[in-house]
Design a protein around this nucleic acid. Structure first.
Lengths: 148, 148
DNA sequence: ACTATATTATTCATATATGAATAAGCCCGC
DNA sequence: GCGGGCTTATTCATATATGAATAATATAGT
């Protein structure tokens, strides 16, 4: 016997509601760990994310493309690229094909920094893997993919 | 047969790494839904959270206590209470016991607004419950509590 | 070709969060 | 009782995010 049946039937959502909050809280904890790890190499999660997309793509992306890949609004990318440029991690270059567009290019320093970031993130991932060891991934995977 | 064994053994963390990102993304989606739902009644998630803690406690909390309950730094609460006060949802009152302290009191309007927020959040929770219906909660619960 | 519409990046105002620096008030050990 | 060390809230600078308004450019429809 787990719980009084009345409690279960009166509010079947209560436990799930708590779970929703738990999920959000857990994600915040993970983000904090990532931020902290990346801070060791002079990056934030936002900066690392932008560099990752640019490097994965292998070619300069317009700021609009960046915004789409990072699912955020363009004005956010304008500022993020300002900061990345100030750090010397990316450069803005004009797009010859479209004079409205600006493309972001990762500098050599940006590539180095990103590689260092990858190593830091891998540590957090290893920790995460350990955390969820011994738990069936199936349920978690299905839930997460159902949400997003 | 699911995957080539080599892939599994070469990088056992890769799938978990993706899962870590999935978890963070899923949480962002949930937060967006909550923000959107709360916006309908003139609240943000941060404001709703603060009101919830104050109302749950049943008595005025000092801003430090608020910060602890919301796991954030105090300067954040200072600003949040500024905005809540501007909205007429809380009032600052002096603490007679400790002249350094400031306590936040929920106004009648704040209570109304919070109740409306609860109704909105319940809708999102219902949606979430539907999303995770048919999936074993056990694994998810254990993973989430292991993280945070 | 020209006009209407759409897209691009930027700027501005704002919300949320952090952390450092500051000012005021509390309290302990002596 | 008081001096030094906490704790309190606030302010400031900054990072991240959104959305509205703007200016420059592109493109479609006529």
């Amino acid at each position: 016997m787990n719980k009084p049946a009345k409690l279960r039937s009166r509010s079947p959502d209560a436990a799930d509601g708590q779970m929703m909050y738990s999920l959000v809280r857990a994600a915040h904890v993970l983000e904090s760990r990532l931020e902290e790890a990346l801070e060791q190499v002079g990056l934030s999660l936002a900066k690392f994310g932008a560099l990752s997309h640019l490097i994965k793509e292998g070619e300069p992306l317009s700021l609009s493309e960046c915004a789409m890949k990072m699912t955020c609004v363009r004005s956010n990318i304008t500022q993020l690229v300002d900061r990345l440029e100030a750090d010397g991690l990316v450069r803005r270059v004009e797009d010859p094909e479209d004079r409205r567009a600006v493309r972001a290019v990762v500098t050599p320093l940006g590539k180095e920094r990103h590689a260092a970031g990858v190593r830091q993130v891998e540590k957090v991932q290893a920790e995460f893997t350990k955390t969820i060891s011994g738990v069936e991934r199936g349920a978690l995977e299905r839930v997460l993919s159902a949400i997003s």
